[in-house]
Amino acid sequence: MIGPMKPVLAALAALVVLSACTEQDMCIYRNTQDLRAAESRIQELEGNVARGYAIHRTTEPYTYTGVCRDKDGKPYECTKTDFRTVEKPVSIDIADQRAQLAALRSQLPALQEKASLARSQCAQLYPE
């Protein structure tokens, strides 16, 4: 995972995927966003509860010596910067995480129903 860059990469990936999608697919994608977000958060909370801690991800720069090329293409040694994701365990309130999980799970049927209705409406609006 890329930490802070993750939303940017996810958005770019979504754009690439959506560029090949039909109007119906895009309509469904837009109208099922709440369900996907809830399912993702449920997975995160389940992982936290199972582990007993959360994982905080940060992206940190690091430098290394690499090979660069001058304007004539000749190689020379240079310092380069890259980024890596660092994961650190973070203590959590398990009871709070379980409460959040229960709340999301109770909302899931309504979100699934809303998504199902949206899929039907999108199919009617944009028949393939």
Rank of each mutant, 00 (worst) to 15 (best):
residue 49 V to L: 00
residue 98 R to V: 00
residue 98 R to W: 00
residue 34 D to Q: 15
residue 86 V to T: 08
residue 11 A to K: 14
residue 107 Q to F: 13
residue 32 T to F: 02
residue 120 S to K: 14
residue 108 L to Y: 12
residue 16 V to C: 04
residue 99 A to Y: 01
residue 124 Q to K: 15
residue 58 T to E: 13
residue 73 G to P: 05
residue 116 S to N: 14
residue 8 V to W: 13
residue 5 M to A: 07
residue 95 A to K: 14
residue 91 S to Q: 08
residue 112 Q to S: 05
residue 3 G to P: 09
residue 114 K to V: 03
residue 117 L to G: 11
residue 96 D to I: 00
residue 4 P to A: 15
residue 94 I to S: 02
residue 103 A to P: 05
residue 71 K to N: 10
residue 28 I to W: 02
residue 58 T to M: 09
residue 72 D to C: 02
residue 7 P to S: 09
residue 126 Y to G: 10
residue 125 L to W: 11
residue 109 P to T: 14
residue 76 Y to R: 02
residue 101 L to P: 00
residue 31 N to W: 07
residue 91 S to M: 04
residue 82 D to G: 10
residue 58 T to Y: 02
residue 6 K to L: 05
residue 56 H to A: 10
residue 36 R to F: 07
residue 25 D to I: 09
residue 71 K to P: 01
residue 4 P to V: 11
residue 128 E to V: 13
residue 112 Q to A: 03
residue 50 A to S: 04
residue 66 G to S: 12
residue 46 E to H: 00
residue 61 P to T: 07
residue 8 V to C: 04
residue 43 Q to H: 12
residue 73 G to N: 07
residue 95 A to C: 04
residue 38 A to P: 05
residue 9 L to E: 11
residue 93 D to Q: 06
residue 48 N to H: 04
residue 67 V to P: 00
residue 71 K to F: 09
residue 90 V to W: 00
residue 90 V to P: 01
residue 25 D to K: 15
residue 73 G to R: 12
residue 85 T to Q: 06
residue 94 I to N: 01
residue 41 R to L: 02
residue 54 A to K: 04
residue 113 E to C: 05
residue 40 S to E: 10
residue 44 E to S: 03
residue 57 R to S: 06
residue 44 E to G: 03
residue 46 E to Y: 00
residue 120 S to M: 09
residue 42 I to H: 02
residue 112 Q to M: 06
residue 54 A to E: 04
residue 40 S to F: 01
residue 18 L to V: 01
residue 62 Y to A: 04
